[in-house]
């Protein structure tokens, strides 16, 4: 185990970096896109509702692996060249957005009720009421489930290994196939994953308690 740490610290470091980068990019973009989809679902517009709902249902109900492989194997063949990291991150982003949208939609709907009417009656437009009254409250409610989703997304980023995305899991496979020391290679990256995910999920539990 010490051997692997000595010889492959570079690979592990690089893998750690790519995993963090994929997770970070996915977090930022799927938060924005997720809010957008959630708004499509709640605004008073039937077609928008259908589109938003459709997006969530489709992407929540197919495996991440299929989405990622689609972007790695099929999109480059017919549309545009994407490398493994990009394809993997786009897949992860589209998939995670659906879950974030679902969380935020239920957050908005749990606030809405009388608050929307109240705000509208003071002369606010729908957009203003949403922006200043509903969304800020909804975001507070959804922080713990969003945090859990973020932990899931970090774990899910290991899907990049399937498309040569250079992440931790990919590096572990590579190290294991050079050293033949499967268990220890995976053990080490297991600890590296835990270093990212454990504090985060403990912090989320703490927040959950505090906000409750």
């Amino acid at each position: 185990m010490i051997n692997i740490l000595n010889h492959f610290s570079n690979e592990l470091f690089v893998g750690f970096g790519w995993t963090l980068l994929a997770s970070f990019l996915t977090l930022v973009f799927s938060l924005i896109f997720g809010i957008f989809i959630a708004l499509l679902e709640v605004i008073p517009h039937k077609v928008a509702n259908k589109i938003g709902r459709g997006y969530v249902e489709i992407f929540r109900n197919i495996p991440l692996l299929i989405i990622v492989m689609f972007f790695y194997l099929i999109v480059p063949k017919y549309i545009i060249q994407l490398n493994g990291f990009t394809a993997g991150t786009i897949g992860l982003f589209l998939y995670t957005s659906a879950f974030i949208a679902e969380i935020i939609r239920s957050g908005i709907q749990s606030v809405s009720g009388g608050q929307m009417e109240g705000a509208r009656s003071t002369g606010m437009t729908y957009k203003q009421a949403m922006q200043y009254i509903i969304l800020p409250q909804a975001m507070k409610i959804v922080i713990p489930p969003l945090g859990n989703q973020f932990v899931n997304l970090i774990k899910d980023s290991s899907i990049l290994a399937f498309v040569a995305g250079f992440d931790l899991m990919y590096q572990a496979n590579a190290i294991a196939s050079v050293t033949f020391d499967t268990m220890n290679s995976y053990f080490i990256i297991g600890i590296l994953y835990l270093i990212i995910t454990m504090p985060l999920s403990y912090y989320m539990r703490y927040l959950e308690k505090k906000l409750a």
Binding site: I189, Y193, L194, S201, Y202
Partner: peptide, 13 residues
């Protein structure tokens, strides 16, 4: 908590 915070792929391996 350990298991929950690891990628499923690793658990499979």
């Amino acid at each position: 908590d350990l298991v929950r915070n690891l990628p499923l792929l690793l658990i499979i391996f």
